[in-house]
Amino acid sequence: MASTGTSLHNRRKLVNTIMASLTSVCALLVTLLLLLIIGYIAVRGISSLSIQFLIDTPKPVGEGGGIGNAIVGSVMMTLFASVIGLPVGIAAGVYLSEYGRNWYGNIGRFVADTLIGIPSIIVGIFIYTAVVLPMGRQSGLAGSLALAVIIIPIVARTTEEMIRLVPNSMREGALALGAPHWRVSWNIVLPAAASGIATGAMLAIARVTGETAPLLFTALNSRFYNYYLDQPMSSLTVQIFNYATGPFEVEHAMAWAATLVLVAAILVINIFVRTLTRKRY
């Protein structure tokens, strides 16, 4: 008996060690993958990176050029898309989790899931037909709307999931004090889920910052600084696409540098939101 017990014990220990090593190797792989990508981009991109590059607009090959207008365009369109998409998405998520246990909520949930799965280029085509054609030209506004369409379902679903994690006892505690339902949702449930919702919002923003396809048809591109949303607007991703598909080596180098800027920006957004939403209570 004793020997069987020991061998069983040893076997368990062995299996445990193997599993622990296996998972930790995979975890390392994931981290390495990210570091490799960032490292590769940094190595390829750093040589063309300069202050001038960050300020300049694209120029004919051989005369330098940069991504200043693309940065401004990306920031403006992402911001405007967030301004539209985040409130709508969060409010929809609140509805789905707090009130949406009915047929209407089920439809909303299904539609949001489907929207998340739609390839972003189709969103671009949709906005092209719905906004660009009636307006008669591509514009930053159309680009922003396309990005907002991508943001809304992601934020709605993550908000819903995060709010569902708020224990029901907390809602009951507030209701028992004589708080009306909407106030419970607004100033107990939402703050309790805030850091999770912010993470979801951040993921959505990071996702659209890297979108190219929906902007190709909608915002198009611009070679100049443009601060007007009703005009075609440049963006980092489309600019990278243009540089990368150009025939010249200088252009490819600039694509790498622009990629580095984009990845760094997404990283900064991540870190910034994470510090901002650190749990205070």
Binding site: P167, S169, M170, G173, A176, I188, P191
Partner: peptide, 9 residues
């Protein structure tokens, strides 16, 4: 309530 349920405040 049975389980204390303070708000995250």
């Amino acid at each position: 309530f049975q389980k204390s349920n303070p708000f995250p405040k």
